[in-house]
Amino acid sequence: ASVAVIAAGTQGNIFATSALRSMRFLQILRMVRMDRRGGTWKLLGSVVYAHSKELITAWYIGFLVLIFASFLVYLAEKDANSDFSSYADSLWWGTITLTTIGYGDKTPHTWLGRVLAAGFALLGISFFALPAGILGSGFALKVQEQHRQKHFEKRRMPAANLIQAAWRLYSTDMSRAYLTATWYYYDSILPSFRELALLFEHVQRARNGGLRPLEVRRAPVPDGAPSRYPPVATCHRPGSTSFCPGESSRMGIKDRIRMGSSQRRTGPSKQHLAPPTMPTSPSSEQVGEATSPTKVQKSWSFNDRTRFRASLRLKPRTSAEDAPSEEVAEEKSYQCELTVDDIMPAVKTVIRSIRILKFLVAKRKFKETLRPYDVKDVIEQYSAGHLDMLGRIKSLQTRVDQIVGRGPGDRKAREKGDKGPSDAEVVDEISMMGRVVKVEKQVQSIEHKLDLLLGFYSRCLRSGTSASLGAVQVPLFDPDITSDYHSPVDHEDISVSAQTLSISRSVSTNMD
């Protein structure tokens, strides 16, 4: 405001104040949320940038038409019409005319000016109207692209899951042992070998009828009888010197917790746990005396209480009078009846079946994303299906024409109403129809010849004498029936064969 007042002088105070007050009108834009329509302006900018070359070309040609039209109309009207006294007036008329506004304040009066105005109007309006069409088509394409992008975003994750499931299904095939990355992934998420051994031990116990592997080994086996189970490696608790092959000598807290839970599941009659010990102070733990958990001091820290809870689970003690015997301790020893080589084939089979199920689920979810969402998608899918159906029908028609023997030239002739090819031409065609016709002709010829021969033979049998045999009239074959199959017997006289037959029969009768 200060700059405006200084620039306008003393009389500019009122002007500056009114100008600043008129800017209050811009507050109405906040009512229509114009300040939060950044996406709309961004869309407009992207459309203009995408079609910038077309817009520049249309505007450039339109500007050239405007300059030439205004100049030529000015030359034609400057002497006869006072409205075109300057080139600026003519340029104003050209702008209003070519933009199809047409105020009518300035019009050419001479015939030359009117002809020039009409010609440049028809030429220039087309170029001035091009930017509107370019922007409209650009907006339509952009909206369609955003629509497809939205659908693509919805299909991206199911497609990625389907590709991942397909690759993992491919890589978990037993015949592709060189693909090891997927197996490394499952090695990292699978439970430890100790848990798998416990699982298979329970399965084997159920197969043995509820007997433990130790009891199965204690059962008497006759001499020479084959053992029911192959000899396997035996594993004891981590306190002993022997372990399962492939295990580490260090046992983690999870393994100890699972070991304690498995020992508690063996039965309360074979294992008696004394009350857990509780320390009397955060600094020292008295293991010899058993106290109640309700006497825990409230001033303990979080670490002390955590250690106390761990001691409740991981440090059970047995009383002296209830101490288990050596046999019970041997039964409680952890027996590992299986090795990694025995378990891994079954584990890989389970993983393979899981990968198949996940692949089928991913495939079903991806197919669900291909379903249409709204009416536009339904129409688009219907149009695509219609085009596909037309293509299939056209391909089927082409194959039928190839089989029947109607080529493209014959199809055009039928469409024009011309006469089709004759039967002889159809026979000569190298097509399925021509071959079928040729075979039918040959079969008819053979059938006719057989009928003639059978009739001749029956007449010979009825006559009974050589004289009557020679008097029999043998009809000749019709050459038209034989089609294109020409037998060497067709052109010979059958009477010669009949005479030869009669001579042979007379000779045979004389010999008798």
Rank of each mutant, 00 (worst) to 15 (best):
S283C: 11
G239A: 04
S431N: 11
G210R: 06
P421A: 15
S261T: 04
T294N: 15
Q204L: 14
N510Y: 04
Q271P: 14
G288A: 05
G470D: 10
T266M: 08
S497F: 05
K394E: 00
V507D: 13
P293A: 07
E201A: 10
D304A: 14
S269F: 14
S281T: 05
G224V: 14
T500S: 09
G391A: 09
R352G: 05
S458L: 14
C460F: 09
P345L: 12
E415A: 14
T294P: 00
S325A: 14
V361L: 12
A274E: 13
L387P: 08
T398A: 11
I253S: 11
D490E: 03
A165G: 06
A384S: 14
V378I: 09
P238S: 06
Q297R: 08
K441M: 14
R217Q: 09
G385A: 06
G420R: 03
M251V: 10
A413G: 10
R205L: 11
T500K: 08
F477S: 04
Q442K: 14
V400E: 02
Q263E: 12
Q473L: 00
R411G: 07
E330Q: 12
Q271H: 09
E368A: 03
R313S: 02
Q381L: 00
G391D: 01
R435C: 13
N303H: 13
F243C: 14
E201Q: 09
I356L: 12
P276Q: 04
A206V: 08
P345R: 14
A384E: 09
D423H: 11
T294A: 13
S395G: 03
I354L: 02
K412E: 02
M251R: 10
A197T: 07
Y185F: 07
A177T: 10
S283R: 14
D374A: 02
H491N: 15
R207S: 07
C460G: 14
S249G: 11
Q402H: 13
V375M: 15
R355S: 10
A225G: 05
D423E: 11
D512N: 05
Y229N: 06
S248I: 11
C336Y: 13
R207L: 03
P293S: 12
M389K: 07
I494L: 08
G391C: 12
T280N: 09
R256G: 15
K376T: 03
C235F: 13
R309P: 12
P226A: 13
A206G: 07
D512E: 13
S468T: 11
R435G: 04
A362S: 08
S240I: 07
I393V: 10
K295Q: 15
